[in-house]
Write a protein that binds this DNA or RNA. Structure first.
Length: 197
DNA sequence: GGAGCGATGTCCT
DNA sequence: GGACATCGCTCCG
């Protein structure tokens, strides 16, 4: 039986937490069904000293969750179309987070395909490989999930540990940003086909 | 299989 | 007004 990750799991700096979250499960409870995916790609965003982070400019209404306690979902709307899922890290007052960039779909693939508006037999790679895609596949929105505690039971959004051991972890530069591009704060499971692009 | 680009809402300057 | 932690579509080879 997978274990719910406790709040203490998220107390450390984002790069530590990001690496440690690889291989863990995101479980989305939707209409009595469980949509589950394994984290295979993730990025760390630091606080006030990371120009690429949303928290860089200081606390605003949008990013307030980042400055709160660890273990809470930070969901934001991007490019007028997509949502991205983050989890806050570090003690209250420290604005670190991790961005979930890709999942390996585990359970509920047919529902994920429907939510992505793809045919039921669509390639699994198209379901959750990318931060915008995985939010669509799991029906994660800012209105419903921003500020949600992911360490609580029950919850529509949880992070679980099923003792899966990821193989080799590769560390790379982050994707899609224009500032602090050189920092190696992206972590992927080496060779996993569900890593984005 | 890769480069180029348009779609489209929200927030900050 | 511009930037934006994206995606899917074209067009080209």
């Amino acid at each position: 039986m997978p274990k719910l990750l406790p709040r203490s799991f998220y107390l450390d700096p984002p790069d530590i937490v990001a690496r440690r979250l690889l291989g863990k499960l995101i479980a989305r409870r939707l209409n009595g069904q469980s949509l589950t995916g394994r984290i295979v790609e993730i990025e760390a965003y630091l606080g006030l000293d990371d120009p690429a982070a949303h928290a860089y400019a200081g606390k605003t209404a949008r990013n307030a969750v980042l400055f709160g306690p660890p273990g809470f979902a930070y969901v934001y709307f991007i490019y007028g179309m997509y949502y991205c899922l983050n989890i806050s890290c570090q003690p209250e007052g420290h604005a670190g987070c991790v961005l979930i960039r890709a999942l390996e779909p585990v359970k509920g693939l047919a529902t994920m395909a429907r939510l992505r508006k793809l045919p039921a037999n669509a390639a699994p790679r198209l379901l959750t490989s990318g931060p915008g895609r995985l939010c669509q596949a799991l029906d994660i929105t800012r209105a419903a999930h921003n500020g949600l505690d992911v360490t609580r039971r029950p919850s529509p959004l949880q992070v679980l540990d099923d003792d899966y051991e990821p193989g080799l972890v590769r560390e790379t530069a982050r994707i899609g940003i224009s500032k602090a591009v050189e920092q190696p704060l992206r972590f992927v499971i080496e060779g996993n086909p569900f890593v984005s692009r």
